[in-house]
């Protein structure tokens, strides 16, 4: 069998237990042949299973490292974890830790993603076209920082604790956020086109939330500042507009600004356009 740059993996049957797909790295697999990919060992409960037992593998005629996964992968975790380069796409749903700690490359998931997607993501671009679970762009227990760089785009709705402890990078949420959006946020930018749930920005220390859609209720531990922020707004709104058309009307408007959470460091800001 000849080597290929990209592979298509079609799920044959649901596994008995959750499967760790972190060994599937587009860049690392590029240049191997279909047989080698099929023999890749995946962790499954307390044992390993060969990839070929769960997936049909075909070579793709891609010119750059690429993986295309097809099927309902909700029992498959850690897709694209620590990914460093290449393209990875999934047609169905995925499990937890999608793109966790990824450093570069592109991931697109057509369906919904489980919890902790993009957690501790450091670079690259991750797009989820469906909904996303809790703690997306967040941090693992004990880690001081959640998402650390790159761009996350979610077209659906997000679960609770969206952007928990996020430190850097840009997140665009086109649907609605669950409760505790941006909890304990350290820095970075979250742009929201939809609504947010209860207690948005709880314990937020720094960072920016841009409300492009409906205006949120401002918590009692946030306070308004009325100074001229047109310079920062110009920089930020132009950038967001370039990232997604849902935000391309921001630049022409002037937002209201509140700061908080005064229960934490209080240097976070909400820029409210809606």
């Amino acid at each position: 069998m000849s080597a290929a740059q990209g592979f298509r993996l079609r799920l044959r049957a649901q596994p008995d237990f959750r499967v760790d797909l972190s060994p599937l790295q587009p860049a690392a697999l590029a240049g191997r042949d279909v047989g080698e990919v099929a023999r890749l060992e995946l962790r499954h409960a307390n044992a390993h299973v060969e990839l070929g037992e769960l997936f049909d593998v075909d070579a793709l005629s891609s010119e750059a490292p690429e993986l295309r996964l097809e099927g309902d992968l909700r029992r498959f975790d850690r897709i694209g974890q620590a990914m460093d380069g290449g393209c990875l796409s999934v047609t169905g749903e995925v499990g937890d830790y999608l793109g966790a700690a990824m450093r570069s490359g592109d991931i697109v998931v057509e369906g919904r993603a489980g919890h902790l997607a993009a957690c501790e993501m450091a670079g690259g671009r991750l797009e989820v076209r469906g909904d996303i679970g809790d703690f997306a762009a967040g941090a693992l227990p004990g880690s001081m920082d959640g998402m650390r760089g790159g761009t996350l785009v979610v077209r659906g709705n997000a679960g609770a604790r969206f952007g928990d402890r996020m430190r850097r990078g840009t997140v665009l949420l086109l649907g609605d956020a669950g409760d505790f959006c941006a909890s304990r946020m350290v820095a970075g930018t979250i742009a929201l086109a939809g609504r947010v749930g209860a207690h948005c920005g709880y314990g937020m220390r720094r960072g920016t939330l841009v409300f492009g859609g409906s205006a949120p209720d401002v918590p009692a531990t946030f306070a308004e500042t009325s100074h001229d922020i047109r310079v920062t707004w110009a920089l930020l709104s132009r950038s967001l507009g370039k990232l997604h058309p849902a935000f391309d009307s921001l630049a022409g408007r002037v937002p209201r600004r509140v700061v908080g959470d005064l229960a934490a460091d209080g240097k976070g800001e909400w820029l409210i356009v809606g």
Binding site: A198, H199, Y202, P219, A220, T221, D261, A263, G266
Partner: peptide, 10 residues
Amino acid sequence: LFDAVAMLAA
């Protein structure tokens, strides 16, 4: 309770 604890902390 979230509101109360946050306000108390502040």
